[in-house]
Write a protein that binds this DNA or RNA. Structure first.
Length: 569
DNA sequence: GCCGTTTTCGGCCCGACTGTTTTCAGTCG
């Protein structure tokens, strides 16, 4: 997929144009196109081939020509020409907080500064003071920004960001005067990668709430502090923004603060056409406050259905909301059980009994214990003789449990040829067989695709686990051709997994959306290796929701009888 | 550069905070 490459090219063009003082709306057009391309669940090359590029919002004649040029030649002449006008390194300056395109241009025009190192030297030498509008404080901010960039604050994955949010929400919740408090931003939209944490508070005493926020224990430095809006950086290097509004503006503020940016622009434009104005304080006709207490009120005023935060990316959800045709997204409470958990039999840390009890407590009606198979020695994979003992243990536990079933499963290994490491006579004994790639990640994309397709073809394999193999901070997704996998999965009634393990979330939201469009069924599992990890299910559900899945698309929303029937190949 | 149940040209979301100003531009979200 070249989607992300092309999005990044458009972003680069936007940066250069902005620095050159080009039309800001032209700049925005490139950025919007980039966001929309990143949000596609289809391969942009397919769209190009089928002449459907202009169906993408924000792509017109010019940008579709540039995409075609890139797809066929691997480059875009316009960017190459632009690159000649800007020395390499200048764009890096934009990564420094507090430095934008205007400042970069100024620095280059005045002192020919074209790298972070040069800027650092000039700032330290005091030379920057010669520029009108730059004084000591600005220089200090620049130097601190450079330190920050050099440390390159990493983005977080969703679960990490949720934990940081809790470090703020929990202590603030109990401050007198803090009424409502909630996360907003990309975290509320449950994006898989979060760059900063946004918090919204309602209070009649905004300054009290602000000072409580900026003086919390995890705060290392205050980046900005105003009467209703502050930003801090935590000890772990994460930026947290906080906004306080009055109760009557809560809905409008939440809508604004949740985004996405493109979503906000679109609905504000819609409001303008109705003679209304939307800002974070409410919906207004002229100066008259119409509403703003809840998001629902605002949506209603615009004549549209409530849009779940996970959908707010301006990818067609607004149009559906206007016609009341939004999908009814799957919810955590729809999940009836977890089909991918481990136990003491392989590399888990809890017994089958403990896993079952924890699952029952959550409210599930089944789990499937899928310990590793024999070839995965590193995870204590089960030999064929151990399997009999494990099965006997499950049968014993099931006799004692009421209204709950432990299913007998396995997570088998797909070997480098696509073969499964138990023979058919063993495989057919299991209630559920999950297959996954655990070795040979370095193989070519076509080899890995072939292995996965072959596993789908196996009549005893019900689920492909963590289909792209990505592990946050460890390795990227392998170069698998998911379109081919989707085709095989659909033909063979094989489910693909959303693995909820915090650093996996694999399939991701875009892939899930594409799988749904290809007619492929999904299962959401946690891959828990201990009872306390079962709670990660909500992360996988978030991915499913971002992928527009409804309960009917997720097989483990079915009751046990329906589940086993649906999984039959 | 995109886009159109008022428009194929003339618009394009809206506001807070900072650092420098003496009324505002730049940055950010």
């Amino acid at each position: 997929m070249k989607n992300h490459e092309i999005a990044e090219i458009f972003r680069k063009i936007a940066s250069i144009l902005e620095m050159k003082g080009d039309n800001p709306f032209r700049v925005r057009a490139y950025l919007r196109a980039a966001d929309n391309i990143d949000g596609l669940s289809e391969d942009i090359e397919t769209l190009a081939k089928e002449k459907r590029l202009k169906n993408i919002a924000g792509i017109g004649d010019d940008l579709s020509a540039k995409i075609l040029e890139y797809v066929s030649t691997g480059k875009i002449k316009f960017l190459e020409d632009l690159n000649k006008t800007v020395p390499a390194g200048v764009l890096d300056l934009l990564d420094i907080p507090s430095i934008g395109p205007k400042t970069v241009k100024l620095l280059f025009d005045k002192f020919k500064i074209k790298s972070i190192e040069q800027l650092e030297q000039s700032a330290k030498s005091g030379r920057l003071l010669e520029i009108p509008g730059i004084k000591e404080k600005t220089i200090k901010n620049i130097l601190e920004g450079i330190v920050f960039v050099k440390k390159s604050a990493e983005a977080m994955y969703l679960a990490m960001a949720l934990n940081i949010a809790d470090e703020f929400l929990n202590p603030l919740k109990i401050i007198p005067g803090v009424e409502k408090i909630t996360v907003a931003g990309s975290l509320r939209r449950r994006k898989e990668i979060i760059r900063d944490v946004d918090i919204l508070i309602t209070s009649g005493f905004p300054q009290k709430a602000m000072s409580a926020f900026t003086s919390l224990a995890p705060v290392k430095e205050i980046l900005a502090e105003g009467e209703t809006k502050s930003s801090v950086r935590t000890l772990s290097g994460v930026q947290v923004d906080c906004r306080v509004v009055e109760e009557k503006s809560f809905g409008a503020a939440l809508l604004y603060f949740t985004g996405s940016k493109n979503f906000n622009i679109k609905i504000r434009q819609m409001a303008l056409k109705k003679g209304l104005k939307i800002n974070e304080y409410g919906v207004f006709r002229g100066n008259k406050f119409i509403c703003g207490r809840s998001e629902n009120e605002v949506f209603k005023t615009l004549g549209m259905a409530y849009i779940e935060p996970e959908l707010r990316e301006d990818c067609g959800e607004i149009e559906l909301a206007l016609n009341n045709k939004l999908p009814h997204l799957v919810e955590l409470k729809d999940i009836k059980g977890d089909l991918h958990v481990h136990s003491l039999w392989s590399d888990g840390r809890s017994s089958i009994q403990e896993m079952a009890e924890a699952a029952k407590k959550i409210g599930y009606s089944y789990i499937c214990v899928t310990d590793h198979s024999k070839s995965l020695k590193i995870a204590n994979g089960l030999s064929i003789s151990d399997l009999k003992k494990k099965k006997a243990e499950i049968e014993k536990i099931n006799k004692k449990l009421n209204n709950f079933v432990v299913l007998y499963g396995t997570e088998v290994d797909i070997d480098s040829d696509g073969k499964i490491d138990y023979p058919d006579r063993i495989l057919k004994e299991f209630d559920i067989v999950i297959a996954a790639i655990h070795t040979g990640f370095k193989q070519s994309g076509s080899q890995i695709t072939r292995r996965t397709v072959k596993a789908c073809m196996n009549k005893y394999v019900h689920v492909i686990a963590h289909p792209t193999g990505r592990l946050w901070g460890v390795r990227d997704a392998y170069d698998i051709n998911l379109e081919e996998v989707f085709k095989a999965a659909k033909e063979t009634n094989t489910r693909l997994e959303i693995n909820s393990f915090p650093n996996r979330l694999d399939l991701n939201d875009h892939n899930v959306h594409a799988a749904k469009q290809a007619g492929v069924g999904i299962v959401i599992n946690t891959d828990s290796h201990a009872a306390e990890q079962l709670g990660a299910m909500h992360l996988g559900v978030s991915v499913a929701r971002r992928g527009w899945l409804e309960a009917k698309d997720v097989v483990n929303t079915l009751k046990i009888d329906g589940l086993l029937k649906a999984l039959k190949k």
